[in-house]
């Protein structure tokens, strides 16, 4: 579908979203996007593992200082 143009330079615009949240990508689509050739039998196990990992990740998604640095920030030495 073509989005209506509002004049000015052509830009990509995201689809209006009434819930104001990102849409979820289906698990099968995520797996397909990885390019890995998984067997259908592996999928339930993989989905369970991903849920486990997602549970761990959810512990890290809480509020934190906006500017908190990751540990990988680095220092340069003068040449």
């Amino acid at each position: 579908m073509k989005w209506p143009r509002r004049g000015g330079p052509s830009v990509h615009r995201s689809r209006p979203n009434e819930s104001n949240s990102m849409s979820e990508i289906k698990f099968e689509a995520r797996v397909k996007a990885t390019g890995l050739r998984l067997q259908p039998d592996d999928m339930p196990m993989l989905e369970a593992l991903v849920k486990d990992l997602d549970r761990a990740a959810s512990m890290l998604r809480g509020p934190r200082p906006f500017a908190q640095e990751p540990l990988i920030a680095f220092r340069l030495k003068p040449a």
């Binding site: 995520r30 998984l38 990740a57």
Partner: peptide
């Protein structure tokens, strides 16, 4: 090994970064 690695493909970049940010706090 396959199972322990393959789901790394499905990890979100933002979650990795949050983990690395959290790591600094834990240190």
């Amino acid at each position: 090994m396959r199972d322990r690695l393959a789901f790394g493909a499905l990890l979100r970049a933002a979650d990795y970064i949050q983990a690395v940010r959290r790591r600094r706090v834990l240190c």
